[in-house]
Simulated assay, not measured.
Amino acid sequence: MVTASIDEIAGNCLAVRVRLLGRAVTGLYDRALEGHGVSIAQVNLMAALGKAGPCSPARIGEVLQLERSTVSRNLSLLMKHGWVEAVSADAKGVREVALTSSGRKKIETVMPEWRQAQEEAAQLLGVGGVKAVRTRREVFRSISHP
């Protein structure tokens, strides 16, 4: 027997709806970028590094709200391609990373597909959704001011 509480959560929970919407939007960008061999998470990581300059992987994870393992995995891939480099390291590992000139070029290369995905995402979200998302711009602002 379904209770009123189960119906209310299943029918109205904003958390699950936002998670599903996030996955749909991420998938839209990832499909657009797949020919470039890069995901939207990796493009955003490179953009954050480009904006911040050299910084610790922990700082990037903090700003982008990513798990340490996600940051590590993506940084490893980006470093393997030469788009990101370790600028300081010690026995404990990488201390700071930076976007390389090759990484900057990669960002420029993906821009047409990124812009197309951006337009599709805006259509999916609608005007009100885009406005709501854009009120949270402090994410990239905060990376410039640790």
Rank of each mutant, 00 (worst) to 15 (best):
L28Y: 00
P57K: 01
A24L: 07
P54S: 07
I40F: 06
S5Y: 13
K80E: 15
K131Y: 11
R31G: 05
A117W: 01
L75R: 02
R136D: 06
F140S: 00
R68W: 14
V130D: 05
E138T: 09
L20D: 12
V18E: 08
V18K: 06
V127R: 13
A132D: 13
L14K: 10
S88Y: 03
E119Y: 05
D90F: 10
D7W: 13
A117C: 01
S76V: 12
H145F: 11
G103V: 00
V139C: 02
L14H: 10
W83M: 07
K131H: 14
H36C: 06
G50E: 04
R31L: 11
W83L: 08
I143F: 00
L66P: 07
V38W: 07
S88A: 10
A47Q: 13
V25P: 01
G22W: 07
V18A: 08
S69D: 14
G126N: 04
D7Y: 13
V63D: 02
G82I: 09
L64R: 02
E8L: 15
V25G: 00
V16G: 09
V97T: 04
E108F: 04
A91W: 15
L28W: 01
W114K: 06
A86P: 09
L45H: 02
I40V: 14
I6V: 15
V130W: 07
M79N: 08
E62K: 10
Q42C: 05
T135N: 13
H36A: 02
A24E: 09
L21D: 07
E67H: 14
V71P: 08
P112Q: 02
Q42R: 11
K105A: 13
E67L: 14
T70R: 12
A47D: 04
I107L: 15
I9K: 05
A24F: 05
D30Y: 04
L78V: 01
D7E: 14
C13K: 07
G129Y: 06
E85H: 07
L64S: 02
K131L: 14
N12A: 11
Q118P: 00
A132Q: 12
L45M: 15
R68P: 11
N74G: 08
V130C: 08
